[in-house]
Amino acid sequence: MHSRLDDLRITTHELDTITGLDISDVFMGRAVRPSVFRTPPRLLSFVVSEIMTLGLIVIFCLPASLVIAKSIPGFTDSAANTIQFLQISVGISLGIFAVWNGYLWFCSNALKTLAHLLEDVDKHNEIIDALQVLDELTAVRNSTTQLDAESTFSLDDRIGVLQALGATHESLVSGLMTERVLRKHQRSLARRHDLFTNIETNLATLQSLQLNHAANDYGHLLNDALQIGMSVRREIEQLK
């Protein structure tokens, strides 16, 4: 059961392959993921990364400026000169740091659609996590009580959720591929059309599953999957 769920999970390795970028919790390629500013642990990682970047820039700029300054006639080891040198070097370092962050912001703007799709991927993986927890709880309940009509009913629902997650998985992969196609090859219209049709079909499947299972325990998971499917379609429509 768990291996089927693991198959549905979209791993970081898969994301790297599909998007052609290095995807992590904080970055997508060189761009910063917008979700960083809504999740405290990710924000902390980002801040640490920024401090490290600033440190590296200072480590490079300060001694490099020193080598240049030493060759300037009249530059001595006096306190006034040293303070002035430090002020200029730190100023240059901060300037480079600001330019670097501007570049990151520019990259993030260019990858807005991908950022939204990655958020959907996170939600999809969260649903799988929730389902795994639900499975474990069901296993515990079944071990303590006899199998009855209720548990048989939940098994049917589980199949429905798995179907929905399968469709979401396909939609997300198609969405990510479409985004990559459009990002890298703007003229590949035929491929884009195929991928978009695939997303539409999966969305229809999700909607029918949602109608069938709306009233039971798995209803909210199906609803989440449907939301992801609709979000993928919305993003791709914007790209069209």
């Binding site: 200072v58 480590i59 490079f60 300060l62 001694p63 490099a64």
Partner: peptide, 8 residues
């Protein structure tokens, strides 16, 4: 600061 900079 200088030693990492030397190698970098």
């Amino acid at each position: 600061i200088k030693l990492p900079a030397l190698y970098l």
